[in-house]
Amino acid sequence: MLRTLRQVIKVGVVSERAARPAGERPKESGLRAQIHQRFGRALGIRHVDAGSCNGCELEIHAVNNPYYNLEGFGIKFVASPRHADLLLVTGPVSRHMESALKRVYDATPDPKWVIAVGDCGCTGGIFGSGYAIRGSVADIIPVDLTVPGCPPPPAAILSGIVSVVTTDRR
């Protein structure tokens, strides 16, 4: 226990403001207030892998690490689409995931946003348009924003999440 506390104190807080998205660069507390004003609570994100190679998943995990500290914005990942405001969808949509993706979208309450993460989600990417692939995420469900990259770095994913929440006036 003491060793654990010593390690926690030694490392301290490593969250970076520098990693915050450029451009609008909202203050952490400002964004939190904005989210709270709109939702009355934290923003919930549901990730859906619609056929990814799992590279994008690794970088989505990274936005929760202490450097990027997504939860510091008042944004958290939730376990069910029914608790979500925002869907992060990765991968070219495989034919075998098409119906599951549509069902997740339908189960997510309005208002909702969808971000396609990664080159495959944006355009279909390297996997092309074979017999087992339906296409990009936008071919299946409405997409509000795309974050390209293979995989996109966590700062880009974070920037995408922040910009969709701060710029959309619906």
Partner: peptide, 14 residues
């Protein structure tokens, strides 16, 4: 399993 089947082997052949 099989949900993320993307036809990778066929894709290689192109």
């Amino acid at each position: 399993l099989g949900y993320t089947h993307k036809g990778i082997e066929k894709r290689f052949e192109t």
